[in-house]
Amino acid sequence: MTVKTTLSFTDRHHNFLMAKVKQGTFATASSAVAAAIEMLIEDEIHRENALQAISSAISERIDAPHSEFVSGEDLFRSALRRIETD
């Protein structure tokens, strides 16, 4: 289903949009806007997936025994040794 709507753009956005249509990148301004919205939808899906992955990693870390934690001192010890020898 197609819905007709009215949109307002800044001169900059309108000129860019019309240039893309003139170049043949998009058949119409509507198809360009639809493509941009599809990109926003994809970005949102990727962001949600990333947040879910981060949340899972945090949950796994919370459930890990304390003996598996890396202390702040140990975390950079090898890097600091390498810097000192260079």
Rank of each mutant, 00 (worst) to 15 (best):
L40P: 02
I37S: 07
H66M: 12
A36R: 01
S59F: 10
E84D: 13
F16L: 11
E42A: 09
A50C: 07
T10M: 07
V21A: 04
S56E: 12
H46F: 05
N15A: 15
V21N: 01
L80P: 07
V33S: 05
S71G: 12
M1C: 01
A32P: 07
T10I: 04
F69C: 04
L75W: 04
Q52C: 03
I83N: 09
V33G: 01
Q52V: 12
A34P: 03
E73P: 07
K22A: 14
Q52I: 13
G72T: 08
M18I: 05
T28M: 00
H66W: 11
V70P: 02
S56D: 13
M1K: 03
F26A: 10
F16G: 08
E84H: 06
V21W: 07
S67Q: 07
I62R: 13
S56R: 15
M18R: 07
V21H: 00
L7H: 05
A35E: 01
A36K: 03
V21R: 00
T6P: 07
M39N: 02
L51Q: 08
H66N: 12
I83M: 14
R47D: 07
D74G: 11
S55E: 11
A50P: 03
N15E: 15
A57F: 06
P65E: 11
M18Q: 11
E68W: 02
T25N: 09
F26R: 03
E60M: 13
A27M: 10
R82A: 14
H13I: 13
T2R: 12
V33Q: 00
S59W: 08
T2M: 12
Q23K: 14
I37R: 06
T10V: 03
L40K: 10
F9C: 03
G72K: 09
L75M: 12
F9R: 07
S67G: 02
K20A: 08
L80G: 02
K20T: 01
S30M: 02
D43I: 09
S31K: 10
A64F: 00
T6N: 05
F26D: 04
A53Q: 11
V70G: 01
L80K: 11
K20Q: 11
V70C: 08
E44D: 02
N49A: 11
S8V: 02
E68H: 02
S56G: 13
T28R: 05
V70Y: 06
L51V: 01
A50N: 04
I37C: 09
E42S: 04
D86G: 15
L7A: 09
I41G: 01
I83H: 10
A57V: 09
A32R: 05
Q23Y: 07
A29K: 09
G24F: 01
D43Q: 00
Q52F: 07
